[in-house]
């Protein structure tokens, strides 16, 4: 399987602070990849680096086989929908399409017009007076009409209401069905990722905690509940992601390719949200609470 984004020791520093550091990443082509992680994990920085909007401070990133935004051909390969889906407020919808047509050699004007028509957008309306949902649709239409190999979406639906969010995702999924397209989409809404994506990357503190086919990840993670015991006694094939104990009971989240045969466990599947949360928790730094001590 070919790779659409490859990062090696990638880092981006703003003044004194690293927004992304030592990021290693390899994303397969032809998938809809969900990038999830807590705020400040570096998702947005990573996507901006991939779109060529930022230059790396260290390491390297390759997109569709070359450095991002290196030349016109590279720029044409990548579509980008930025956070909050900015558009030119004073330009009309039709102006935006003209802009896209004039600035992109591979622009598909017929598709763009058809989509705008179907979305019910008035071509004469100024983008500044569109609703958030319509603006997002316009930005997505523009990114798609460019006919990119890779479409990058940075939290595109974060600020939209549920209906607009659904409509946006419908347009996106329809395009994925129609066009040969790799998609990387960052979101903190697990429900969107669950429906739209077939590949998951959990990014915490610049590090990829887990990456893989979504169904496979769900199928290989299990919740085990049983009498209290030490997780170290599990077979080597079972990787413990998270563990919690009461004085009697132990609850584990394990990843394994093999069936769990130990009858002392009650085994349960997990949903995507649990999986994501477990990986986010796992890497969270341990906060030591100061203990109150009796002064003598």
């Amino acid at each position: 399987m070919s790779t659409v984004i490859r990062a090696r020791g990638l880092g981006k520093k703003y003044r004194q602070r690293w927004a992304l550091q030592d990021c290693e990443l390899e994303l397969p082509a032809g998938r809809v990849i969900g990038l999830v992680g807590p705020n400040g994990a570096g998702k947005s920085t990573l996507l901006n680096l991939a779109a060529g909007l930022l230059a790396p401070s260290s390491g390297s990133i390759e997109v569709c086989g070359g450095p991002p935004a290196a030349d016109v051909a590279q720029l044409a390969r990548v579509g980008f929908v930025a956070q909050d889906t900015p558009t030119y407020g004073r330009l009309s919808v039709a102006d935006h399409l003209t802009l896209g047509r004039r600035l992109n050699p591979g622009w598909d004007d017929a598709v763009a017009r058809e989509r705008i028509d179907r979305l019910g957008l008035d071509p004469k309306q100024r983008a500044g007076t569109l609703s958030g949902g319509q603006r997002a649709q316009l930005a997505l239409t523009m990114a798609l009409a460019k006919r990119p190999e890779l479409l990058i979406l940075d939290e595109p639906v974060a600020s939209l209401d549920p209906l607009a969010r659904r409509e946006f995702m419908q347009l996106l999924m329809e395009a994925v069905a129609e066009q040969e397209l790799s998609v990387v989409l960052s979101s903190h809404l697990v429900s969107d990722v669950e429906r739209a994506c077939d590949y998951l990357v959990v990014l915490v503190d610049s590090r990829v905690q887990v990456a893989g086919d979504l169904d496979e990840l769900i199928a290989t993670h299990h919740r085990l509940v049983g009498a209290r015991r030490d997780p170290a006694t599990l077979p080597g094939s079972q990787q413990v992601i998270s563990a919690s104990h009461t004085d009697r009971q132990t609850t584990l989240l394990v990843r394994t390719q093999e069936p769990i045969l130990d009858p002392s466990w009650s085994v349960d599947g997990i949903n995507l949200e649990d999986l994501v949360l477990a990986y986010m928790d796992k890497s969270a730094p341990v906060v030591r609470r100061p203990r109150l001590e009796v002064q003598r």
């Binding site: 060529g52 909007l53 030119y88």
Partner: peptide, 15 residues
Amino acid sequence: ETGTLRMALTQSVRR
């Protein structure tokens, strides 16, 4: 400010 820079710079035109 308005973020349109990110739209402009991701069209197929060198910055």
